[in-house]
């Protein structure tokens, strides 16, 4: 059992049909960490990744279609520590949209958010279809904006886990007390946060009352 678990909110962005959901589906469906079934809830998907002594628990927020009519809520970006900006290597338009999302994240999201630029559907190229977004072009964008960059295939699983691992490795871990001091404010707030899943009174004395 790993005691150091860091929860990381990761948001997905990208044009429709570039494979955002497939990438996540591939990631959470893989028997990727400690033989644990991925958990699928109503709120977001979670998947754990072990990095050294640490476990990163990704809380993955899908856009749930709310990006379609420019209707993503501020809540979506809030406190996101990581983002996948996905485009389709065979669709130049989706790469233009990816630039837009990177800009949007830099404006809306926390400073220090880790952004991974992901060119998906790399498998199609291997099948002979034409690549329309040059690898160099994406690498250049990643370099300029300080993004991680991967070309993936959600279909074959190629580079999917690597993408999440690379994000995980860049996540600052909260283990030492000195790190806590630096983030004094944040910790204060976290201490104030109420865990509604943890309801000692309900669990103990009032449980019989509920079954009447």
């Amino acid at each position: 059992m790993n005691s150091n678990v860091t929860s990381v909110k990761l948001v997905l962005l990208g044009e429709a049909a570039v494979g955002k959901s497939s990438i996540v589906l591939r990631f959470v469906s893989n028997d990727f960490s400690e033989n644990k079934e991925p958990t699928i809830g109503a709120a977001f998907l979670t998947q754990r990744v072990n990095i050294g002594n640490h476990t990163i628990k990704f809380e993955i927020w899908d856009t749930a279609g709310q990006e379609r009519f420019a209707s993503l809520a501020p809540m979506y970006y809030r406190n996101a520590q990581a983002a996948l900006v996905v485009y389709d290597v065979t669709k130049p338009q989706s790469f233009i949209k990816a630039r837009h999302w990177v800009k949007e994240l830099q404006e809306q999201a926390n400073k220090g958010i880790i952004i991974a630029l992901v060119g998906n559907k790399a498998d199609i190229i291997e099948d002979g279809e034409e690549r329309k977004v040059a690898r160099e072009e994406a690498e250049k964008l990643a370099e300029e904006e300080g993004l991680l960059f991967f070309e993936t295939s959600a279909k074959t699983g190629n580079n999917v886990n690597e993408t999440f691992l690379a994000i995980g490795e860049k996540i600052p871990l909260k283990n030492s007390s000195s790190a806590n001091d630096q983030h004094h404010d944040t910790n204060n707030n976290n201490n104030q946060r109420i865990d509604l899943d943890n309801n000692p009174v309900d669990a103990a004395s009032n449980a019989p009352g509920c079954s009447c």
Partner: peptide
């Protein structure tokens, strides 16, 4: 209790997201 970052505006956004996850279509503006 109150919700951080804003009160009923935040709670509304939360339920809208839940609705979207449940299949509702959202269109602002």
């Amino acid at each position: 209790m109150y919700s951080k970052y804003g009160g009923s505006g935040e709670v509304s956004q939360g339920f809208c997201r839940s609705a979207a996850v449940g299949g509702a279509t959202y269109k602002l503006n």
